[in-house]
Amino acid sequence: MSAAAETGARLYFAVQRRRNRDARGLLLVAAAFLALYAYLFPGLLSVGGFAKFSQSWLPLALVSMAQAIIMIAGGVSLAIGAMVSLGAVIAATSMAGPLGVAGGAALVMIVGLAVGAACGAIVVRLGLPAIVVTLAASFIVGGAALLILPRPGGAIPAWLSDLLAGDTPVAAALLVAVVVLWKSYLATPIGLSLYSAGENPVAAYRAGAPVDAARIAAYAASGLLSTCAGLFVAAQTGSGDPVIGEAFTLNSIAAAVLGGVGFLGGRGAMRGAIAGSLLLSVMINVMYFLGFPPVAHYIAQGLIIVGAVALPQFTGRRSGA
C-alpha cells in the first residue's frame, strides 16, 4: 500500500515536472519583467505593494484560465467578458441583500456553472461552432447583466472589499487556491480526459474517454471562473457595473495565446495561461509606472501579442508541409 502510494506520488509529480517544460521560457520572461517592475517600484516587495499588484492581476488570471480551458477543449469563447459583468452585478445586488455574502457568492458560482454548462451543451450536443454560440451568448448574458443592474450601482459589503482588495495579499492566496483546485480537477478522470477530447475526440471516444462530458464540464468550469472574476472585480470597486467585463474577452484570448495555448484543442497548459496573464499584467503596470500614455499600452500590447505568436516562425523553422 505504502509502496504503491509512493510510486503513485512519484509518477504524479514526475508528470507535473515534465509539464513545466513548455512554460519555462515564458515564466522567465515574466520573471524578468517582474524584476524590472520591482526595481522601478520597490514598494512591490512590501506586503501592501504585493497585495495591490496581485489584485490587479487576479481577474485577468482567472479569465485567462477560463479562456484556456475552452481552448484546450477545442473551442474559443467570446462570452468571457459578459460573464464577468454578470458575476459582478449578481454579487453587487445580492450580497447586501437577504442572501448575504455567502449566499451571494454561491449564487454567482451557480449561475457561472449553469450558464457555462448551457453553452457547452449547445456546442457539444448540437454541434454548433463554439465561436458563434459564445457570440450569441455574449448578447444574452450581457443583456441579463443589464436587466439585473441597468446602470452602475449596487453594493458590496465594505468588509468583503477590504478583505479581498485591501492591504493583505488575499488575492494571491485566492489564485493559489484556484490553481490547487484546478490541479485536483485535472487529477480526476473527467478532468484529464479534457486534453484527449480536445486533441483527438474520435480516438478518445473510441478509447472510452468521456469526451462529451469532459467538454461540457470545461465550459462549466470556464463559466465559473469568469463569474468569480466578476465577483472579485465588484469587490475591488465596491459596486457592480453591467459592462465592466467587456475588455476581458480579448485580453483573455491574448493571455492564453501568449501562454502557448493553441487554437486547435489539446495544446497548452493552465500554467502557460497564468504566466501569459502575469506577463500582460506586469507589462501594463510597468508602462503605467513609467508614465507611458494609454496609447502606448494599446500599441505595445498589440505588438507583443503578434510578436509572441510570430516568434516561433523565426526561431524554430519547421520542415514538412
Binding site: 509518477l11 508528470v15 509539464r19 480526476t188 478522470p189 480526459s193 486534453y195 484527449s196 483527438n200
Partner: peptide, 25 residues
C-alpha cells in the same frame, strides 16, 4: 494524446480511481 504522459495515455478511458481521483499508484 501528445501532451499527457505515457502512463496517462495507457490508462485513458479506464482510469483506476480512488475517492473520485485518478489512483496514480
Amino acid at each position: 494524446t501528445s501532451q499527457i504522459s505515457i502512463a496517462e495515455n495507457v490508462g485513458l478511458g479506464d482510469f483506476p480511481r480512488r475517492y473520485g481521483l485518478i489512483d496514480y499508484g
